[in-house]
């Protein structure tokens, strides 16, 4: 149904190459997340798949058919935009049924599909309102409703949650994951938020400057990042990188150790340091440790109850089995 294959796809705007030739296969029914810092080309890649931008070279295949020159409407994909892009002068019902009206479906079928989408998305009571009278989360659901009534081969989400407040974002994240479980349709989701990527994806594609840095399941990326960039991007707080003598001890140019893999003790430990700012989250405490002689700051995750204060001297012990080693080129060595 929704297998998408990118074959040597590249995109340039004028002289600047935004996406160098790139190969990627998205399997049918898979929830794929494109993640990367802003300006990495992830949105452009999504727009290429949608057909809103023309590829400079290469081919895009959808369901085994070459769709490179096919217009966006005929690719059978539905997109949810960051700004929701609802039609402000139409009611929710008209918004959701718009693609069906454009496809000239008969009225009864239109109504049936709109009712079903509305009940799935809890919008039944709002069908006669206009987008301006809805909250952010409801607007988001209308945008998703407009996408699902088309019964597309794949859904494309372009940072759909970035305009919502934190609590709503968590809620909508669950709803979208739930929707994917129910529909089993291919979904491609673009975000710069690695938490969204980790929690929702079957497979994550990490992008930097148009290059694919690594493709894999969330835990693969977490446990075996292919290079320094992926190691630093996936995981929160960021992985600590240590170069120099300490790294040489492990036979690498740089070693990376995640904050959750370092033990904090008051007395004895491998490294000594001074506590800087500590962020208390209740369940955890993130300690920013300075003067270790290893790096500017080492971030450590400790339990919620630790009572270290600014300026306290402490000791750190990394778990040796989960140290990531990288060579001079920044690639994982092992």
């Amino acid at each position: 149904m929704g297998r998408i294959v990118l074959n040597k796809v590249s995109k340039s705007f004028g002289d600047t190459e935004v996406i160098p030739p790139l190969d990627l296969t998205i399997e049918d029914g898979e929830f794929t997340v494109f993640v990367g810092p802003s300006g990495c080309g992830k949105s452009t890649l999504l727009r290429l798949i949608a057909g809103l931008e023309d590829v400079t070279a290469g081919t895009i295949e959808i369901d085994g058919k070459d769709a490179t020159q096919v217009s966006p409407a005929k690719r059978g994909l539905a997109m949810v935009f960051q700004s929701y892009a609802l039609y402000p002068h139409m009611t929710v019902r008209k918004n959701i049924s718009f693609p069906l009206r454009m496809a000239k479906l008969d009225k009864a079928e239109q109504d049936r599909r709109v009712e079903r989408a509305a009940s799935v998305l809890n919008l039944t009571d709002y069908l006669d309102r206009r987008p301006g009278q809805l909250s952010g989360g409801q607007r988001q659901r209308v945008a998703i409703g407009r996408a699902i009534v088309r019964e597309p081969a794949a859904f494309l989400f372009d940072e759909p949650l970035s305009n919502l407040d934190a609590a709503l974002r968590v809620g909508m994240r669950l709803e979208i994951s739930e929707l994917h479980e129910r529909l089993k349709t291919t979904m491609i989701y673009v975000t710069h938020d690695q938490v969204e990527a980790m929690t929702m994806a079957d497979r994550i594609v990490v992008l930097r400057a148009g290059h694919i840095e690594q493709v894999g399941s969330p835990l693969e990326l977490y446990h075996t990042p292919r290079n320094l960039f992926v190691a630093g991007f996936i995981g929160s707080p960021k992985m600590n990188f240590i170069a120099g003598k300490e790294a040489e001890k492990h036979g690498a140019h740089t070693v990376g150790i995640r904050p959750e893999h370092i033990m904090v003790t008051e007395k004895k430990g491998s490294w000594a340091g001074v506590v800087g700012v500590s962020e208390h989250l209740g369940s955890d405490t993130f300690l920013h440790v300075h003067e270790t002689g290893l790096a500017d700051t080492i971030t450590v995750r400790a339990g919620g109850e630790v009572g270290f204060r600014h300026g306290d001297r402490i000791h750190l012990t990394p778990r040796d089995d989960v140290i990531h080693k990288f060579d001079t080129g920044g690639l994982r060595s092992e």
Binding site: L52, A73, M79, Q82, A85, Y87, F98, M102, R146
Partner: peptide, 18 residues
């Protein structure tokens, strides 16, 4: 006019005149 609205309409299958 928000250009994403036009793009959304394009994805929804509306031709230029629509």
């Amino acid at each position: 006019l928000d250009s994403e609205q036009l793009e959304a309409a394009e994805m929804d299958g509306a031709p230029v005149l629509a």
